[in-house]
Design a protein around this nucleic acid. Structure first.
Lengths: 150, 150
DNA sequence: TTCCTTGCAAAGGCTTTGCACACCG
DNA sequence: CGGTGTGCAAAGCCTTTGCAAGGAA
């Protein structure tokens, strides 16, 4: 609540207009940890019909452009948003059950350094998920070879 | 050539029918290092009109299911394929110029181990690209803030 | 009052699917 | 021949866009 309020104030200070739609969309993004555009839309719709999916996309783009939210591509066409205040984190995406686990970014430190040292490549690992199999699916699906085969 | 020939023979041995379309599609995938479905289609089309994009998608799916090719989601809706013989590698995707750099997987060893240790998550980092800025774009676009903002 | 924002509907890009015909084995 | 594989065209999904009306400042 106060979290999304801060974001709204920031938008206002930067000269953007504060509309009920933007308030509700920002609140919906701030509510989840990693949320799809569709989920944002649905959450807002629970409150009112006065929001269009196009506005959701436009507002999410605005938040990302203004650095107030992050956009992460989890692969397979799944894109999730999170407010910047959540802080950077990695998304572990289970190929089997689709679950998303958040991991700390310290895991990536050595990788980030090596990529820069070897290739001069400065990366933003938060932009993409890492796919694999979660602990549960490994037990449950030891017989399923989908993963190993690829 | 002999590379794609091997793949075709494998398909035959596994009971799949060998059609001219499959031969050409497999050759096109084997030709590149990371190729989109559209690129495969275009390469085949240079030889003959007798191929449909739907067949390209179906054949690529088949190759992936059979473990003969890998599918990597580079983010932003870009999906590339590579024959399994190329061996696993990481794709570094430049957010600015779109270039794709291939990196060695040894970079990921510690990350993979840590993810398993901390979360029991067994990952396939080859499935997803890592986005960031390549060396050239860092120099060229020091003024461009697109990257930092997200 | 100004002109930024929104809703609506259509268009886009990529991928999948249903169906009848073609052709590999 | 039998059944797999293909072409074609349509549909599906997700996202973007043009335009006129609405509303924040």
């Amino acid at each position: 609540m106060s979290h999304s309020h801060t974001l709204i104030e920031t938008l206002r200070q930067r000269g953007y207009r504060v509309t009920p739609q933007r308030e509700m969309i920002v609140e919906a993004v701030a509510h989840g940890r990693h949320t799809t555009a569709e989920e944002v839309f649905e959450r807002v719709r629970e409150r009112t019909q006065a929001v269009n999916i196009a506005t959701v996309y436009r507002t999410l783009d605005l938040l990302v452009e203004e650095g107030l939210a992050s956009r992460t591509d989890l692969g397979g066409g799944r894109v999730v948003y999170a407010t910047a205040e959540h802080g950077p984190h990695i998304h572990l995406v289970c190929l089997q059950c689709g679950r998303v686990i958040e991991a700390e970014t310290d895991l990536l430190e050595s990788l980030v350094q090596e990529l820069e040292a070897r290739y001069g490549f400065v990366c933003a690992p938060q932009h993409l998920g890492i796919s694999g199999l979660c602990a549960d699916c490994q037990k449950a699906g030891a017989h399923d070879k989908t993963f190993e085969e690829e």
